[in-house]
């Protein structure tokens, strides 16, 4: 009896070892799967993007220079683009900030020539400069440019020194003056950090055009400035386009017609 009991104990132990080994193998496979899955998903996303109209084949490629062309001569309500931007990024949810403290990624600027009386309106957002002063002055590298030319802020690295806001000639950046809640999933925003138009990277990476472009009724064209066959390049080649404060030689990625 004693021997039998011993045998049973040994068998139990063997089963336990078997079970734990099996668990280990399953666990490993599951862990490996979990590790690989996001990469596969990312790969699929990247592949899916190649199907989009924006020719972003290999992620943010330095062969691409994303930009926008704004036709100010078109009679559109630019405020629709502003509203679309605010909705996309969850802006305008400040409770305590004064008006001059609230974030605006895009604004409508009214311009009047004092001499001739000529007036026009145009939307102004981050101009996504090639030689961006905000990136030069940022001490931590939080202000950065993707290889495809989109200038954006890494909210996790920004220390809130606001030097980029001092340096930007377009007044394109805002500082978050209060605790924010109910942010949108796409646009993390936090008190004490600087933020600005990011050309809707969240949409672009999914193969969609920026929110302001979509709401502009064709008055803003988005695309690859480096691709001679793109609509934006063709329009610029045919009708030309101007950059705001081109004299500063920052080579913005946003062009305007009719200014």
């Amino acid at each position: 009896m004693t021997i039998n009991i011993e045998n049973e104990k040994q068998q139990d132990a063997a089963t336990k070892v078997e079970t734990s080994r099996r668990n280990f193998i399953f666990g490993s496979v599951a862990a490996a799967g979990l590790t690989v899955a996001p990469a596969v998903m990312l790969y699929q996303t990247a592949n899916a993007r190649s199907l989009s109209d924006f020719s972003l084949k290999d992620g943010a490629s330095s062969k691409v220079r994303l930009g926008m062309l704004v036709d100010t001569s078109k009679q559109v309500d630019w405020n629709k683009s502003v509203e679309a931007c605010n909705k996309e990024h969850g802006l305008g949810n400040e409770k305590d900030s004064r008006d001059d403290q609230k974030t605006q990624y895009i604004r409508v600027v009214d311009v009047k020539n004092k001499g001739t009386g000529y007036t026009m309106s145009l939307p102004v957002m981050c101009q996504h400069c090639e030689q961006a002063p905000c990136i030069d002055v940022c001490p931590t590298g939080a202000s950065m440019k993707r290889p495809d030319g989109i200038v954006l802020v890494d909210s996790h690295r920004c220390i809130g020194c606001r030097y980029c806001m001092m340096a930007c000639p377009y007044k394109a950046r805002s500082f978050v003056h209060e605790v924010l809640t109910d942010q949108t999933e796409n646009t993390p925003r936090g008190k004490g950090c600087v933020e600005s138009c990011n050309m809707c990277v969240n949409r672009i990476d999914k193969g969609q055009e920026p929110a302001c472009v979509k709401a502009s009724n064709g008055a803003i064209v988005f695309g690859d400035l480096n691709d001679p066959t793109s609509t934006i390049s063709a329009l610029l080649k045919e009708h030309g386009g101007k950059q705001i404060r081109a004299d500063l030689k920052l080579n913005p990625g946003v062009y305007y017609q009719g200014i």
């Binding site: 990136i135 030069d136 002055v137 940022c138 001490p139 931590t140 590298g141 690295r157 920004c158 220390i159 809130g160 020194c161 606001r162 030097y163 500082f175 978050v176 008190k191 004490g192 950090c193 600087v194």
Partner: peptide, 25 residues
């Protein structure tokens, strides 16, 4: 007066040597 003074460690470890602020550190 920084927006995020709690991120001092970021300023002390992540540098952009083009920035005059970085030189000043």
């Amino acid at each position: 007066d920084l927006g995020r003074p709690d991120r001092l460690i970021v300023a002390m470890t992540k540098f952009n040597f083009v920035s005059i602020f970085t030189w000043n550190i």
